[in-house]
Nucleic acid binder design. Structure first.
Lengths: 237, 237
DNA sequence: CGGGAGCTTGAGCTTGTTCAACCTTCGTGG
DNA sequence: CCACGAAGGTTGAACAAGCTCAAGCTCCCG
């Protein structure tokens, strides 16, 4: 593992303030693997044998029922997934698939559970990670229940613009059909959503989006810190 | 506080296996209060000063944006709420309101955070509680994104029938408009949902629901353990 | 240059919402 | 004790949002 990877891992909430020994024991027996785009990392309804950490690339968390499929979350570096299933020693509620070539660290689930019992600081970091994940999911639920498709798109654009530097433009980092599934709409409806937003300060060309009048877009989207702002990645104390 | 209440509290996931001392310290300075139906216990966007535990009655967790309101969760005894906000020392994402007369224990938030640092077993219990809450919310998100209104209703009926004894009938424990908001539909649409389900083995009269043909209802609802089954309230180990 | 994948557009349809009227139940006051 | 009113629930009609299907477009890549 590269020194640069170690640095990345230490940025994770879940390793913050953790004993060096715990950290070393966690990564020593773990697999660092590179996967091509489109690899299925795990499928829902399977036991969670590893905790996964994305070091590079994008991973889509999805779920399906009766033919329909939806995207729950899309993770970039550095993020972890299926922590809750690992802790509960339970099956996964979501499938995971790489959207781009990706480098992923896989830590054996029982090792995580061992370390949890041994290192109080690790446990504390896990508590904050879970609390944040929970709050993010509640926000997503509100997003789905309280807003229309076009509103969800508008707010996603605002969030993405900010995280891509706040320069008034952004690049959609994956296929539009995936964005559509994440936003809870069909690809067709996403297209129409973009057309509708052209009246509210948004120009789109391919995957390139220009927000020509951000005030107008904000007026339309009505973003709320109770729905949109990401949970702080650092626990305050 | 009654002995019976102490028993109830000890049933909570979050106090399971916790030191007697921690438990006593948690409840000693806490307020046990009775509220009439319709009391607003807390409003979203406010700091979380207490951890709330429902000992009797029903509490509705809701959220609103731009005029619209939705119900996120409905809690009976014995359940806790806003644990995540308490741990993060952050604002609440949801409002809480009693639906019936209710008895609620309120534990000061900073006390919770203190105890967390002192009692490793308490922290461990909190980890499992949070992991379960997270998984429940992911399931609810899937419920919303993957199913139609009538399907959500059908699956809610199946879950409720089971938790009310599995006798093929159930009583809706609150107003239908609240059920509608919880299921993510309008009151009118809920009405139509019930009419539609009469073709799938469901009879309704007032708040009384009879499931005359549960096989038929299951065929229609297609319940899934990845969406519907409640998270186990006891961590396995 | 041709082919294919992803995206867009349009038409028709399904689902869900809105608004208004009406019905039912229940509690209150004449 | 009945009458009335208010609140919750249901029903219907019109409308809006979203989905499906099919056709056509664009862009990338061989």
């Amino acid at each position: 593992m590269r020194a640069e990877d170690i640095e990345k891992l230490k940025c994770l909430n879940v390793f913050r303030g953790v004993k060096e020994n715990t950290f070393q024991r966690a990564i020593a027996p773990s697999f660092l693997q590179s996967f091509p785009a489109g690899t299925i990392l795990l499928e829902e309804n399977r036991p969670a044998d590893f905790l996964y950490i994305v070091l590079d690339g994008l991973v889509e968390m999805s779920s399906s029922a009766t033919g329909d499929e939806t995207v729950i979350e899309i993770l970039g570096p550095v993020n972890l997934f299926i922590l809750a299933a690992v802790l509960n020693n339970d099956i996964c509620l979501q499938s995971a698939r790489t959207l781009t070539p990706a480098r992923i660290l896989m830590i054996p689930a029982n090792l995580i559970r061992e370390l949890l019992a041994e290192d109080h600081d690790f446990m504390k970091a896990v508590v904050f990670e879970l609390a944040s994940a929970y709050r993010r999911t509640v926000k997503e639920l509100k997003n789905q229940k309280l807003r229309s498709g076009a509103e969800r798109l508008a707010n996603w654009l605002l969030r993405e613009e900010r995280s891509q530097g706040g320069e008034g433009r952004l690049t959609i980092p994956y296929e539009k059909r995936i964005l559509a599934a994440y936003l809870g709409m069909t690809a067709e409806n996403l297209s129409r959503g973009f057309s509708a937003l052209s009246a509210h300060g948004v120009n789109i060309k391919g995957l390139q989006v220009d927000i020509v009048d951000i005030g107008k877009l904000i007026d339309y989207a009505r973003p709320s810190p109770l729905i949109d702002d990401g949970e702080p990645r650092l626990p305050r104390d």
